[in-house]
Simulated scan of single mutants.
Amino acid sequence: MISLPEAVMEKIAKYYNVNADIIVSEYMNIVKADESLFMFLGETSNLIFTHAIYPEDVVKFETAIKEVDEGEQVYVSIRLKSRDSDYRWMRVFIKPYHDKTSGRYYNLEITDMYTLKRQNEELKQISEIQTEFLSIIGDYLFTYNISKDSLRIILPGNGNQTIVLYEGKLGVWSSDKLDNSMIDSHSIKDFEGLCMAIASGEPYFTRDIKMKLADYDEAAYWYTFKGKRIHRNDGENIIAGAISLTQNKEYPAEDVSVQDELRDAGTELLNKKAITNYAKKLIDKRVNHKVTIAIIDIDDFKTINDTYGHMFG
């Protein structure tokens, strides 16, 4: 337990967000509890959990326990008494706990309604952004917690049909894709730019990548990644976005050396059309960012051409 003055503990209890995972016996003794519950309830030596429940909610809680004994996993909303004698609404998820050798035990996952409301608001915000980015054939969703370096890519489905393609660190995911040649060689720079945009928390970004997104992809496909940054109330930044399978695309102008119309016939250098196409694509990608174009001129180059010929020049 953290040793703090009683007045400080009471103030913390009033505003502390409870998100606890506890074990209770069939007699409702608290066998194991997270720190957040101790902070909220106060001293819990030999505490009977039902003693902390608002009297009118005890019957509802006991009914839920009976349903768990019958093989169910139950959600129930009850009020718990804090160390300053105020009651706060909690959502409790109850399921059997089987690690004990004798007697019945229950696992209670307790979340206060304030925390739950905030989480739901964040999920709604993420969902709205992802829905905004999804096309008619939109396939995958992703989120990235910047401070925790936690990337999650899923294939949405109904209930348990949702498939998690990846969950872990961004660097591990990007290295795996690059090391296993799952990024088309022409898209490597764009893929590295995508990872940089995600890691740095770029406010808004879109990238077209030709890659094998899923391990079971038989070939590389074009995917459009669209993401947006969310600034949470607790100061953390979350990236939310969608990944859509797109139609086959041509490579950017800098990669189309086989297209004669984009090169000067004499020098085979990229011509004005190719440079214009490339500049437009670059500007479209750099939403809300400045783009600088530098033009370099060689003085008196005409003398070289006139003296040695255009082919030499």
Rank of each mutant, 00 (worst) to 15 (best):
L134A: 06
Y114W: 08
Q161R: 09
L80G: 09
C195S: 12
K189Y: 08
D139E: 07
N107A: 02
V74P: 00
K148R: 14
V291F: 01
D139A: 04
I275E: 11
E132I: 03
P203D: 11
V18R: 05
E268A: 05
Y166I: 08
T63N: 15
K32S: 15
L165P: 01
K302N: 10
T162R: 09
Y140V: 06
D215Q: 08
I137D: 11
G313V: 01
F49V: 04
N46G: 10
S150D: 15
Y216E: 15
D21P: 08
D179Q: 13
K281H: 05
I283D: 00
R79W: 10
E35G: 03
I183S: 08
S200I: 00
T131H: 14
N158R: 15
T224W: 01
T303I: 14
S25L: 02
G227R: 10
S82T: 00
E250R: 05
V76L: 12
I295G: 04
H231M: 07
I275M: 14
R83I: 10
S45H: 04
A199H: 11
T276F: 03
R263W: 05
K302G: 11
F38I: 06
H231E: 12
Y204M: 05
F38E: 12
L123M: 02
G42W: 06
A219D: 15
T267H: 08
M1C: 14
V58Q: 14
G42Y: 07
T44H: 01
G313L: 03
I78N: 10
Q119P: 00
P55A: 01
F61S: 05
D300N: 15
K285G: 04
N237M: 14
I94Q: 04
V58C: 08
I198G: 01
Y54T: 01
K81I: 11
L213P: 14
T246M: 06
S135E: 09
I30Y: 03
I188Q: 15
D264N: 15
Y15M: 08
G201L: 00
L151C: 12
L178N: 02
E35Y: 09
C195D: 02
Q247P: 00
G309K: 03
I129K: 08
T224E: 15
K100C: 07
R232D: 00
T50H: 02
Y204W: 02
I238M: 13
N180K: 02
N180M: 00
E268R: 12
A265R: 13
F142I: 09
D215A: 11
N271D: 02
H51G: 01
F61W: 08
K189S: 14
D300C: 09
K212Y: 09
I65S: 10
V172H: 03
W89I: 02
L141M: 02
M113D: 10
K32C: 13
M1G: 15
F312P: 00
S147V: 13
N17W: 11
I153W: 13
Q130S: 06
V258Q: 05
I230P: 04
D99I: 13
T131L: 09
E261Y: 14
Y16M: 04
K177A: 02
A199G: 06
D217F: 14
V256G: 01
K281C: 00
D86Q: 05
G168K: 06
L151D: 11
